[in-house]
Design a binder for these strands. Structure first.
Length: 489
RNA sequence: GCCACCAUCGUCUAGAGGCCUAGGACGCCGCCCUUUCAAGGCGGUGGCGCGGGUUCGAAUCCCGCUGGUGGUACCA
């Protein structure tokens, strides 16, 4: 077998906030590709936007990546052979590359002010043509430059886009994409403060870090020709490129903060499981050959190929995520699920912070009764609240069941259950017996009892819940239920 | 405005010229199971944006249109 160079891909977020669902999508595809190819997954922070980048976000991003189980092989925290992995620590590298471009005539200094540039843009807009920088700084003499400098103007560096050429690249997902350089304005690659702009820094980093495949969102398609031109000017073969479709909100626009719940952390806090979230995200724009929906991390890695990634954008469908999450919850062992629910129960005040006094066996029984009833972990709270304190009587449920007939049922049950063996089967038989004796349907006996015990018409299985609650508590709640009947009538 | 990308059920998708009377999944609806709600089982609803080509044959290829999205920054 021929030796192939090792696949190297990267996730390059800017530390300007937590991980967004869109970031996760492309990060996942990069990670899956790396893992499927025995490649290297690199984490790099693109922090050249000094205004918005904050070091605090880095820690948040690490934590979320760890929560998701997306591990990286090189990064700012663990280093690697091509570091540093934070762009602001690589300024000398960009400077070197910029110098090369300047010397080879592929770049030039530009002294235009933002105001002057705005005017040019306004002019182009007025004429209804695409904006192209006027290039009035392309051929500045030493004297002209000195004059600008003495005015106190600090230059940017622009890349000189060649005239009359077609830039073309083969996108693995989309096929050939061509752009005419005549439609491209000379981009600023280094700001007047010496910090490189995105398109330049990315190209330099991807070269320096030996990136073999760029997998990113389709929003970057329009940046690609610029970057290809930079590669060409530097005499470097560009990596293989793949643009994945965006993820859209229900309004069909690119998912963003505006849509709410667009951060990974939002889903973590609601009780979505990382495996479910990853499974769901993988299915947005990709599907395994056999069409399976529930697919483990291992299988995703095994079956992932860029060839199967679709180019169309996709809408984030919360309902499907919830279904998948429910599937994963149902697949967990009771021990695992209980552990996963504990933080949510604590946050709701159902469990103390210090778990040493908690009856874990009882807790597991409670969780087990809710397992196939919850779609997200946080739902454990509403589903099982009556185990942790007095029931919250739902007015509608009370009105419907705690009627005069309900009162009769509960009063009979109070006596009956006083000495029924406290086991689910016996309890069920007892309730049915009462229904028979009263000549009513079993349902009409169970429902008032359910409301008295749990507070609601909707609850986990009743007799199993009563078993956990114990006789005294249940009898007390039945009396409470009777009282509610009386206060009504 | 200009440039680019995209286009199969409501949603995620399968589909790489005949296997398509377009398959699966989520959702929705109905039935079964059942002490509630779920879960599970069974069934149903529902789609190739439009118009031209190419071809014996098009969801699949080409062109146009329409629609959507993205970019158009000394943001990334």
């Amino acid at each position: 077998m021929a030796h192939q160079t090792q696949v190297r891909v990267r996730m390059a977020p800017s530390p300007t906030g937590p991980i967004h669902v869109g970031n996760l999508h492309t990060a996942l595809f990069n990670w899956l590709f790396a893992r499927s190819q025995d490649g290297v997954f690199i984490l790099r922070f693109e922090d050249t936007d000094q205004e918005r980048s904050k070091p605090e976000w880095e820690e948040v991003i690490y934590n979320e990546m760890r929560w998701l189980g997306l591990d990286w092989d090189e990064g700012p925290d663990i280093g690697g052979p091509y570091g540093p992995y934070r762009q602001m620590e690589r300024l000398d590298i960009y400077e070197r590359y910029a110098k090369r471009l300047l010397e080879s005539g592929h770049a030039y200094y530009c002294y235009c002010t933002p105001e002057e540039l705005d005017a040019e843009r306004a002019e182009a807009r007025k004429k209804g043509v695409g904006y192209l920088y006027s290039r009035r700084c392309l051929h500045l003499s030493e004297q002209q430059r000195a004059a600008f400098e003495s005015e106190g103007r600090r230059p940017t560096i622009r890349f000189r886009v060649p005239d009359g050429e077609i830039v073309s690249f083969e996108d693995i997902i989309r096929g050939e994409i061509k752009t005419s350089t005549d439609d491209m304005s000379d981009p600023i690659i280094v700001r007047s403060n010496g910090i490189p702009t995105y398109n330049f820094a990315v190209a330099v980093d991807d070269i320096e870090m030996r990136i073999t495949h760029i997998i990113r969102g389709e929003g970057h398609i329009s940046n690609t020709p610029q970057q290809i031109l930079i590669y060409q000017a530097l005499g470097v073969e560009p990596p293989i490129i793949a643009h994945v479709g965006h993820i859209l909100g229900a309004d069909r626009t690119k998912l963003s903060k505006r849509h709410g719940d667009s951060f990974v952390g939002d889903y973590r806090d609601k009780g979505f499981l990382p495996d479910a979230l990853l499974n769901f995200m993988a299915l947005l724009g990709w599907s395994p050959p056999d069409g399976s929906e529930e697919i483990s991390r291992e299988r995703m890695i095994k079956e992932f190929t860029l060839e199967r990634v679709s180019k169309a954008p996709s809408i984030f469908d919360l309902k499907k995520l919830e279904w998948l999450n429910g599937y994963y919850i149902r697949s967990m062992s009771i021990d695992e699920l209980t552990q996963a629910c504990i933080p949510f129960l604590q946050r709701a005040g159902h469990l103390p912070d210090d778990l040493s006094g908690v009856d874990m066996e009882r807790l597991k029984e409670i969780v087990a009764l809710s397992q196939e009833r919850i779609k997200v972990l946080s739902e454990i709270n509403d589903m099982s609240d009556f185990f942790f304190g007095p029931p919250k009587y739902d007015p509608k449920s009370v009105k419907k069941t705690l009627t005069s007939q309900g009162r009769q049922v509960l009063m009979t049950l109070e006596k009956e259950l006083a000495d029924t063996p406290w086991e689910p089967d016996a309890l069920e038989a007892a309730v049915r017996g009462v229904a028979d004796r009263l000549a009513i349907k079993a349902k009409d006996a169970f429902q008032p009892l359910r409301v008295a015990i749990t507070g609601s018409l909707v609850s986990p299985p009743l007799v199993e819940s009563m078993k956990i609650l114990g006789r005294e508590t249940c009898l007390e709640r039945i009396r409470q239920g009777i009282a509610l009947c009386e206060s009504k009538s």
